[in-house]
Design a protein around this nucleic acid. Structure first.
Lengths: 146, 146
DNA sequence: TTAGAATATAACTATAAATATTACAAGTAA
DNA sequence: TTACTTGTAATATTTATAGTTATATTCTAA
């Protein structure tokens, strides 16, 4: 089980939009950097637009950040692309026997535990902004924007 | 995207094995409480056996805990049933363009971040033992083992 | 030692999600 | 109008999960 790469692709896109302001960032151009199909990029851009993180210009093309990097947390991105539903990182089996102490109550005992595990993980993402991601990228050597 | 219910089913099984020591816990009997197929239970029991958490008696049938509840953390169970691979909760897209600062480095920037998020989540599971789960179950009203 | 019951495991099916792709309508500016 | 783009539906492929059937093996008690 893995969380969809939509999340990492979305951060990739946002970093590009910031670093390539001089370029017309069309879905095809972004797709080339990400190495996927332009439609995949357009779908993710659609979700980022819905979350009011980017603006997409139809007709002419190109996408643009609507917020400062420091105002976009990785949790915002994660929520925007809907890779994991609220309180649903863990699937807890249902339909258990209610004639049994364990079957009747296991769900209500486990649910708060796994929700806490999920929230704790998401809190890590909430504490990192796109600004840090881009700074990390810039600290790497080489690349096309040297 | 959800983490497989193998994890919650495994905790269900372990709680049953502890609370139903007087019963011969066959895969069919357990499957009835969980509300699934006996083969599904046997597959999970096989993983718990491999992790040396339970002992399964072939021929006669029945399974038994090999450790005290307090010695079994939820992280042990989670690892036993292999619901998420080490450092692979998040899928980070690969094959990106290495002619671009972002494409060339996004993976190495994001990987440590998502690994940290995963580890933090798993740490929550590491701090809860099956003893707490069973205590919570016993604190619920009703059931077949009153 | 054999019959009965259980486990171990392979094989198959069904379902769902992710990803890639094609196709086409609609928007926009030169 | 033309050329290019976005938005989105439809389809195909892959992968994981979960359920099921079937069969070989294991063990005990009669």
């Amino acid at each position: 089980m893995k969380i969809s790469s939509r999340f990492s692709v979305a951060t990739h896109i946002l970093a590009l939009l910031h670093l390539e302001k001089k370029t017309l960032c069309t879905s095809e151009w972004i797709a080339n950097s990400v190495n996927t199909n332009p439609v995949v990029i357009r779908r993710i851009l659609g979700q980022l637009k819905k979350a009011e993180i980017v603006q997409v210009r139809s007709g002419v093309g190109g996408s643009f950040l609507m917020k400062e990097l420091a105002e976009i947390t990785l949790l915002d991105v994660y929520h925007a692309v809907e890779v994991v539903d609220e309180g649903e990182l863990f699937q807890v089996h249902e339909g258990t026997s209610d004639e049994c102490l364990v079957g009747a109550n296991i769900c209500s005992v486990l649910s708060p535990i796994v929700c806490r595990a999920q929230s704790t993980m998401e809190q890590v993402l909430a504490e990192i902004t796109m600004e840090e991601v881009v700074t990390d990228l810039e600290n790497k050597l080489g690349g096309c924007t040297e």
